[in-house]
Simulated assay, not measured.
Amino acid sequence: MLVGRWLAGAGLVALVATMGACGVATASEGDGAPAGVGPSGTVPAASAPASGNPAASAPASGSAVESAPPTASSALSAVLSGTRRVTIVRVDGFESGLSLLDGGRLAEVDDDQGRQVFVPTPLGSQEFLIKSYRGGGAGRPLCWQVHNPGDGRPLVVHGAACRAGDPRQRFVIVPVPTGGDREFLIMNRWAYLRTSARSGLILEELGDSPPMNSFRFNDTGPAPRQG
């Protein structure tokens, strides 16, 4: 794309030189022409790349390209780096947040019960251990683990001692393409985390259906040092 710009600049140099030889009016003679542009829309040779050399117009160090503000991707990488603690809220969950309850199951609550401090810890290939701590970050964490209650009931998430090699604890976390900053889908293999009016938070394979729920990760500070 830059090469095309360099070629266009070189062409304009040749055009200006030719028109100058034929006595075409300069920019100062134009009537109301924008600054730096001749009455015929030409660019003065002084502002065009010299000799068609791309290096002549290459951005200098500290240019706008290099000093552009950080994008959302830097924030995304921070909350998934394993060095930050987060709270997790279902995007349409109003005031409820996720908590790993003392009884062992992941649920949505609107108070301070259970473990509500989470540290997504990367394992590679977009897989993570999701470590769970109590509010102060004290003690050893428990990790999310898929649990099958049997009897045809849906899969749920329970807490268990952290084991990176256990597939049931390796959750995939991916950004929502059309979502806001720090909005993610959470799944284990082909089962997505979602809410059910009957069963609360469950993991369900969706087939060809789109995921029903996404989750916002809110950065609340450095990760606890334990675990």
Rank of each mutant, 00 (worst) to 15 (best):
G82H: 07
R168T: 12
G136W: 05
A50H: 13
A72K: 01
S81V: 07
S47R: 11
D112M: 08
G135D: 05
A78E: 15
A160K: 09
R168Q: 12
G62Y: 04
L101A: 09
P120N: 04
A107W: 00
R105D: 01
D151Q: 14
T26R: 13
P210D: 12
P39N: 14
A17C: 15
P224R: 00
V176P: 00
R189M: 03
P154T: 15
L15M: 06
G30V: 07
L206V: 11
M212Y: 09
E66N: 05
G103C: 01
R134H: 04
D31L: 15
R168N: 15
R85F: 05
G139A: 10
L201P: 01
A8I: 10
A45G: 06
R84S: 15
P59T: 06
S196D: 09
I186H: 05
G137H: 10
V117F: 09
V117D: 03
Y133S: 08
K131H: 04
L98C: 11
T220Q: 13
P69M: 08
P54M: 07
A27H: 13
L100Y: 00
R134P: 01
L80F: 02
T220W: 05
D102H: 00
L155R: 11
N213Q: 07
L98N: 01
T42H: 12
P44I: 04
